[in-house]
Design a protein around this nucleic acid. Structure first.
Lengths: 129, 129
DNA sequence: CATCGATATTGACAGATGTCGATGCATACG
DNA sequence: CGTATGCATCGACATCTGTCAATATCGATG
């Protein structure tokens, strides 16, 4: 695999197609692909946002509720939600005037498997079309 | 417990003592305690360093070997190793002139459990087939 | 002791990131 | 229509972060 398949992958896809960290040395390209997801998580506000959404009933929450949970400006919360969304950790759905964000358990599971693959074997890098 | 127990905890301890993200909303203090570990991971060089050490035989590697794996200055690698060490993701041991870093599977497992406590139960994200 | 080799620390600097106020853009409702 | 509300985008700013060259430290060895 000479040319990186990671350039065409979304962050979560890059995570899902890697073998676990402790299995073999991560390639530079794979690392670059995965890092956006970890960066998205590596902020206290975003971590709480993700937890709020994921632990909310139905695994989703309205932006208006999320705003109220922080003492931060609305644009700031909107910014953080965008980062989580672009990393593939939150899905977005507009219903009327409101916007709902939904957590993605598959993405979280893929990330967890990358960090510590104790039980299941993740499939090695499988090119998709 | 109104006063934060997280101030006295090392990053990995903060990770280990939290219920999973999707179980209940993360408290601001818990988030602050966990974030250093995620920040440590959220860099391509550090992610590769961790993977190199973890996948190396015996789960440990000498700094001299790690330096050679990157086209970065020695102080830069030393800096990144320090960050990983202070986050509790790598352990340090000096043997003679050389320094060895060892990965901490428990820390990684704790982090994986925080992100997705179903990681070991769900058939890890499988590609469509 | 003098020196060398392996790591760590320091100081400086450019670029990335979190935050805000102001503004834009839809959609709902009189 | 016009207006109100929910959310996103923009521009600006201060702070944080990754990187390097220079230097310090510490153990081994002659």
């Amino acid at each position: 695999m000479s040319n990186s398949p990671f350039l065409t992958l979304s962050p979560v896809e890059a995570v899902a197609c890697c073998s676990p960290l402790s299995r073999e040395p991560l390639s530079p390209e794979a690392a670059e692909g995965i890092v956006p997801v970890l960066k998205a998580l590596a902020d206290p506000v975003r971590l709480r946002l993700l937890s709020l959404v994921a632990s909310h009933e139905g695994g989703e929450a309205c932006v208006c509720d999320l705003n109220d949970a922080f003492e931060l400006s609305q644009p700031t919360i909107s910014h953080h939600l965008k980062v989580l969304h672009e990393a593939g950790l939150l899905e977005r759905e507009k219903r009327g005037v409101w916007v709902y964000y939904r957590s993605s358990p598959e993405s979280m599971a893929a990330l967890a498997a990358l960090i510590s693959d104790t039980a299941s074997q993740t499939p090695a890098v499988t090119p998709r079309r």
